[in-house]
């Protein structure tokens, strides 16, 4: 049907392209909605918990979220210096 219309009109139907572009864009934008706050919060709380036991550079804590079609993944990347152990033995 579309091909027939295309032949008659001599033009390509652009609406299907619009539809597809919107679907991809909006799936992405809906994923981003409200996310900055969530990631900031997660990062701050993870940093606080880990810092209780390990000396950390706050800059080296990266929290990232990847949205997939069916599942999303939360990636927490914490760089820890060698010889990191805050001497719990000394503290206790």
């Amino acid at each position: 049907m579309m091909n027939l219309l295309r032949l008659i009109g001599g033009r390509t139907a652009s609406a299907p392209v619009a539809r597809e572009r919107l679907q991809i864009l909006l799936a992405h934008e809906r994923g981003l909605r409200g996310q900055p706050e969530l990631l900031g919060l997660l990062r701050a709380e993870i940093l606080a918990v880990v810092s209780r036991h390990v000396v950390l550079d706050p800059e080296k804590v990266v929290v990232r979220m990847e949205r997939g079609k069916h599942v999303s993944t939360l990636e927490v990347d914490i760089e820890v210096p060698n010889g990191f152990e805050r001497s719990l033995a000394a503290a206790s």
């Binding site: 219309l5 139907a13 619009a18 539809r19 919107l22 679907q23």
Partner: peptide, 16 residues
């Protein structure tokens, strides 16, 4: 124009 595929169809908009 929608019938010619030049304009987003109602169903497409509602689905999106």
């Amino acid at each position: 124009r929608a019938a010619r595929g030049e304009m987003l169809a109602i169903d497409d908009i509602l689905e999106i």
